[in-house]
């Protein structure tokens, strides 16, 4: 990146129209100093991205997901644990539960690769205690899911039983 100093911070008009310039570039080509002052529209025309750079990450991802995942499939892919559909994820870019990573693995993988600068697998810290295995995490998630359902349908007997099961399950050290 070659930096040139002394560019003035006065309000300039776009080189190509009378709108205020929002993008200012100074380049040195063969010892000649070339200043460019452009409005958003003309900057975009010149291939200089404006505006959209600064959107929050979530919004970027949402647009990104929409752009790259094509049209919604006729049968929406659904996470069998939490019931979230892939189309819903495309709307707000939030997954429903850890199990979604497995349920949506096929459409999610290429998205992740692009959003994560070609990263596909985790490298780095792993829980010190090694936590609980992935199978047990899934089982626990499903039990909690059934519990939430039971509470919702006011089946308190079943809920109490499930709660006992969960505490017992959690108490068992692998």
């Amino acid at each position: 990146m070659a930096l040139v100093w002394g560019a003035r911070a006065v309000k300039k008009l776009c080189d190509k129209c009378n709108h205020p310039a929002t993008v200012h570039e100074v380049e040195i080509v063969k010892g000649q100093k070339i200043e460019k002052h452009l409005c958003d529209d003309h900057a975009r025309e010149e291939g200089i991205a404006v505006g959209e750079d600064y959107k929050p990450i979530n919004e970027l991802l949402t647009n990104f997901v929409k752009m790259h995942s094509g049209s919604a499939p006729a049968h929406d892919l659904v996470c069998d644990n939490c019931g979230m559909g892939f189309s819903e994820f495309r709307e707000n870019s939030l997954l429903g539960c850890p199990q979604c990573y497995i349920a949506f693995e096929a459409p999610l993988s290429p998205l992740l690769e692009r959003a994560q600068d070609n990263g596909t697998h985790h490298i780095g810290k792993v829980p010190q205690r090694c936590g609980i295995g992935e199978r047990r995490q899934e089982q626990l998630l499903r039990m909690r899911n059934r519990l939430a359902e039971a509470v919702k349908s006011e089946d308190f007997e079943l809920a109490a039983r499930l709660r006992d099961d969960i505490s017992q399950f959690e108490g068992v050290v692998e």
Binding site: C82, M84, N92, L94, L95, G96, C97, P98, G131, I132, R136, Q137, L140, L141, M143, R144, N145, A148, V151, K152, E170
Partner: peptide
């Protein structure tokens, strides 16, 4: 582990 993410938790 074993809980849905926040937006989908009861």
């Amino acid at each position: 582990a074993g809980f849905p993410f926040v937006s989908r938790s009861s």
